[in-house]
């Protein structure tokens, strides 16, 4: 039997793995990729809660609001990756590296 706790644990595992990626990588693109994994883990837990509490809300707003919120997170993640990659390209053009330390100072 599929339990909500199991799915939430999967989400926690993915989130921590993404956190490890964010903390351990030096390349900014890899950091963004790990960040996407963390957002994905949050999406899984949102959908889990949405499915679990679907019958408790009033009407459509209650039954699917978690899934709607997941769609919003996806849209924000897409926008964030677009902006983030554009910033990485801009930094790369100036410093010729995608190393996160190269962006340590904003001036010049």
């Amino acid at each position: 039997m599929l339990e909500p706790k199991t799915v939430l644990f999967l989400a926690a595992v993915l989130f921590s793995a993404g956190m490890y990626g964010v903390l351990s990588r030096r390349n900014m693109i890899m950091i963004l990729m790990s960040l996407e994994l963390m957002l994905n883990a949050v999406n899984i837990s949102l959908v889990t809660y949405s499915r679990h509490w679907a019958g408790q809300g009033a009407g459509l707003m209650g039954s699917h609001s978690g899934q709607f919120f997941t769609l919003m997170v996806m849209a924000v993640a897409a926008a964030e990756v677009g902006i983030g990659l554009a910033i990485i390209v801009a930094i790369y053009r100036r410093t010729q590296t995608a190393d996160a330390d190269s962006a340590a100072e904003l001036k010049n």
Binding site: I29, E36, V81, T97, A98
Partner: peptide, 19 residues
Amino acid sequence: ALAVMFLFVLMFTDTRTRL
């Protein structure tokens, strides 16, 4: 979409670190 965007940027940046 996101994977293609990542692949694009990966392809035209040098992913080696300064070290």
